[in-house]
Design a binder for these strands. Structure first.
Lengths: 176, 176
DNA sequence: ACGATAGCAGACAGATCTGTCTAGTATCAG
DNA sequence: CTGATACTAGACAGATCTGTCTGCTATCGT
């Protein structure tokens, strides 16, 4: 992996997440990544390709983080929820990058939105599998709930509302 | 209320909600509202003032819609959740305008973010009052949960995920 | 009658955004 | 050595964005 490319992607990840995608221009990414403009366009066809690269790596990273949480069945669900709550209380937390991106891309057919869809489906499936593993009744419906609570935790956490985050975790844990 | 002003505000509301705030330019609002540029700047000092007018009227409208739901105590909470679920299944639904706006305004001190805060606090207080009215134990914590579920319902609804919306309503109703 | 207000059309300035292009340097594989 | 690749700096084009300004018309309260 080229050093310039990863510097661009790291900078874009930091800026897009912290400030939003449409508000951050290519020039800004280029300047803060300390690369030449031609170098940027050598590695990425367009800004949109950079946005997709940002969300794709974020997709893989998040799957790594939550997929790496140890345990099985209910215990693993519990650990994942705790992890989520911890992250959402962290200093730089500004909500779920996918939900934030979805708010900026209104067209449901847009590749960005498809990635958001993919991530949520991955999470829902993970929850359902863990529920089935725990011999839970109504695993499908409970997985839907756990997905909605995940959405809520990231939203509330991004807005600095830790009370709502705690309430979400509590209810989710009680309901599985 | 001047006709041009309300035409501007109606157009801005439609476009900002459907396509996002940063992606819609002033020129577009002006063109679709069929007003002159000078007329726009006669009524609004800047785009930001228009954005705040959009969210402020939306704030009042939403309070009117949910505040107008009849009933008391648990029944009223139930009716409000049903209303929310119905709205989120509607054709033009693209999530909560406040949460969408918050995703575009990263600075928590920004007036837009303060409005989002206000709306969520209003909703949380409404829920807490209704819970107290229903002699619910832990009204405060349950109100936090109902707020988080509201966030989740609007997010899931905006993404077209009706299964999650239904799961959220179900759980919220069961938990109060 | 007259001044204030609201409205129109559209040019303009200045900034900013994406993307292209020129021109040159450094590295490295064959 | 040579050619391909990665990189640098920065000018440039073309679009778009916000906001100002000029000039004109219509309405309405006093």
């Amino acid at each position: 992996m080229s050093s310039a490319r990863s510097r661009i992607l790291d900078t874009a990840t930091r800026l897009f997440y912290a400030e939003g995608i449409h508000t951050v221009g290519i020039d800004r990414v280029i300047a803060e990544a300390s690369v030449a403009k031609a170098t940027f366009y050598h590695h990425f066809k367009s800004k949109e390709e950079l946005v997709l690269a940002y969300l794709t790596t974020e997709y893989q990273r998040q799957r790594g983080v939550l997929g790496g949480v140890p345990g099985a069945g209910r215990e693993r669900i519990s650990a994942i929820l705790t992890k989520l709550a911890d992250l959402s209380a962290g200093p730089g937390f500004r909500g779920c990058p996918f939900l934030n991106a979805a708010a900026e891309y209104a067209d449901p057919e847009h590749p960005v939105r498809r990635l958001v869809e993919d991530y949520r489906e991955w999470y829902r499936d993970l929850m359902r599998d863990l529920l089935i593993e725990a011999d839970s009744a109504d695993a499908t419906q409970k997985a839907d709930l756990l997905l909605l609570v995940r959405d809520g935790i990231t939203v509330a956490g991004g807005l600095g509302d830790q009370a709502a985050v705690r309430a979400g975790v509590r209810t989710a844990l009680a309901s599985v």
